[in-house]
């Protein structure tokens, strides 16, 4: 038996919108820790890891670990029927091939339930070691989204370079080149507008912009994004989900042969 009640149902709606462009079908894993997911995109270049901790739910009952295979597009279709202020409850029974989403309006005058068919998904779970990153950049998520969008109109790849000066995003294409440098500005009044750069070693890595743009679908989840980089390792682009957990995107770099 599984029953997860999320008062801020809009968070689940935003999570789905954040990941469904990258991944079509995925297993949602439910345990005492929380509601989680790990899935790769179809070309195995990017990976998404989601965690919504059990403490973040108003009510969290998960009698034993279960894994529910869902089409994210179908799940998004159902969650789009929930109002932004609705409370969302996810219900499942052991051995059942369906999951139920219940939506309650804040005034309790409208209660809907949507039952969705589950699917069998063979998924490969990857072990991601804890790593010390050479550089960690924190910046406003909207700024990062803007940069990825702007650069993708000029080139297909972005070079992210971190130096003591700040973080530089560069691209080149048929029409020319572009460089955007963001400097630290941690003295700004509003913490959500700050850009901070922690650097142990200079880093320069090349990534496909198509994936970066896909990650920025998570922008509504968090005012800030954290970009963790190490030379010749996948980048981690993390959006924290207020007091509940995170969506992390891992993207393999393009490496000189």
């Amino acid at each position: 038996m599984l029953e997860l009640r999320l008062v801020q149902g809009s968070l689940l709606k935003k999570v789905l919108e954040a990941i469904r462009e990258l991944v079509n079908d995925a297993n949602f894993d439910c345990s005492a820790t929380g509601f989680s997911l790990q899935a790769m995109d179809s070309s195995h270049v990017a990976l998404v890891a989601l965690l919504l901790r059990s403490e973040g739910f108003e009510h969290y009952r998960c009698d034993r670990n279960i894994s529910m295979g869902m089409s994210l597009n179908n799940m998004a279709k159902m969650l789009r029927c929930a109002g932004n202020d609705d409370i969302i409850t996810v219900k499942g029974d052991d051995g059942s091939d369906t999951v139920t989403f219940m939506f309650e309006s804040p005034t309790q005058d409208k209660i809907s339930d949507f039952e969705m068919k589950l699917m069998d998904i063979d998924s490969e779970h990857l072990g991601i070691p804890e790593a010390e990153y050479h550089a960690i950049v924190r910046m406003p998520s909207a700024e990062f989204a803007r940069i990825c969008k702007d650069l993708s109109s000029i080139g297909d790849t972005v070079v992210i370079s971190v130096t003591k000066e700040g973080v530089k995003f560069s691209t080149k294409g048929d029409i020319g080149t572009a460089n955007i440098v963001c400097r630290q500005n941690s003295s700004v009044d509003k913490p959500e507008e700050a850009t901070t750069v922690e650097m142990n070693e200079p880093v320069s890595l090349t990534f496909a912009l198509r994936y970066m743009n896909s990650f920025t679908k998570a922008t509504p989840l968090s005012n800030q994004v954290t970009i963790s980089l190490s030379n010749e390792l996948p980048v981690v682009v993390e959006y924290k989900i207020a007091e509940m957990g995170y969506v992390r995107f891992y993207l393999a770099p393009k490496i000189e042969e």
Partner: peptide
């Protein structure tokens, strides 16, 4: 020329 690596090159399956 840079080659797009797969995420599978970096992380082991569990």
């Amino acid at each position: 020329n840079r080659r797009q690596f797969s995420i599978l090159v970096f992380y082991a399956m569990t």
